[in-house]
Amino acid sequence: MRVADQADPGYVEAYGMLGGGSASKSLGKLTKIGPDAWQSTGGLKYVGLDNNGLNRVGHVMRHTVPGGTGFSVFSVPRNQVIELLDEAYLSPSRRPVPGDPAAFITPMGRTIGTSGENAVRLILRPGTTEVISAYPVNYP
């Protein structure tokens, strides 16, 4: 395994996942664990490609660019999104979405979305820590 660097394909290097933002130096760092697969220091895995050929980091990073009505967008800098997701995943405030055992909402106690969203919704592969998607939501 190695830490993500400029040799990694796709969006990982483009968004500078080398330890990320300032809130916590221990979160938000990605390590390559296989082809199109990374693991964050918080324990989340980003594995495989989406239907458009983006790796899972790139898929999540779509939520840093306005995508039309109903598509929520993170207000934090791109190079702090992975760190934010680590924080959301590890937070004791994280709770399952009723009726959806692979989805979780974490109230963040601050605005993290461009429309004032204050929580992160994580969608994982069932029974794993593999991220399918993550985006800002309002809570409650």
Partner: peptide, 12 residues
């Protein structure tokens, strides 16, 4: 159909 699960994408 807009996804009734995530409310963030289209169902194809």
């Amino acid at each position: 159909i807009w996804c009734p699960r995530c409310n963030q994408g289209w169902v194809t």
